[in-house]
Computed example of a mutant assay.
Amino acid sequence: MSASEEELIGHSYTRARKHPLVIGKLPGAGRLPGGPYTITQVMTMVISFGLLVMTRGLWAHFGAMNFILMALIPWGLAWVLRYARLDGRDPARAVRSLLIYSSTPAQGRLAGKPQRVARPRLATATCTVRVRSADRPAPAAAATKPAPAPVRKARPAPAPAAAAAGRPEPKTGLQALLASLDEQ
């Protein structure tokens, strides 16, 4: 089999390496019934038990069955959470991600702070262009100011080969440089 015909196979072990933190063993090497439990399951059991204790005046009318309900409802919720998966994550992590996503600014963050985009505003500026022709006299305001002396730049001497070849004489320094490069 040549290199171009070789079949490439990729393996991903990421899911197998993600072990949740669990609570499941007792100090005497025994296991909790129904365990091991994730932190999400333990928190669900504690919170639901606390809510049942606080609201027992509303629902606790079954006599001795009240104690069984106070044990079975939290354990049942924890058992359901063991198998509940949202996008491959346990529900507590999915809710946390949803809260983080909903609290993130719409424009994102820049250096840990919410990035603010400035509102667009109308630019108000004026620009006046006055064109003077050479045959028209200068305005009176310009005549009162002394005109600056013209600055003369040294012009490179035209290449003699350019004149001999019938090429026009270069007008700028760049044209002279290009003409001298053509000669070489």
Rank of each mutant, 00 (worst) to 15 (best):
L98A: 15
G10Q: 14
A140R: 06
R167A: 14
T144F: 03
G108I: 04
A149F: 00
R116D: 00
S4I: 07
L178V: 03
R85P: 00
A176T: 05
L77G: 08
K145N: 11
D87R: 15
T14C: 03
I68H: 02
L72R: 01
R82Q: 10
L72W: 08
A141Q: 09
G108H: 04
P74V: 11
F49C: 00
A161V: 12
R116G: 01
G30K: 10
G88L: 01
P27T: 08
K18R: 15
L177N: 11
G10L: 14
V46L: 15
T128W: 04
G88M: 01
D87K: 15
S12N: 11
V129S: 11
A134Y: 07
S97K: 14
E169R: 14
A147W: 04
P168N: 00
T104C: 13
A161I: 09
V151N: 04
D90V: 03
D87P: 00
V42C: 07
F49I: 02
M43G: 03
S97V: 02
A125P: 00
N66Q: 02
K171A: 13
I100W: 06
G166S: 01
K153C: 06
P20H: 07
G108A: 02
A134R: 14
R152W: 08
M1D: 07
S103D: 14
L177C: 02
G112Q: 06
S103M: 13
Y83A: 05
R167Q: 14
Q175G: 08
Q41H: 01
E7D: 06
P74Q: 10
Y83W: 13
V42Q: 03
G112K: 03
K25L: 09
D87H: 13
T144L: 10
G34P: 04
R17P: 00
I39A: 13
P114D: 12
R132Y: 15
D182I: 02
R152S: 13
R167E: 15
V53Y: 09
A134S: 08
H11Q: 14
L77M: 11
A164F: 01
E169N: 06
I9T: 14
H61M: 05
S48F: 01
Q115S: 05
P91H: 01
P146I: 07
Y83D: 00
K171N: 04
S4R: 02
V46Y: 15
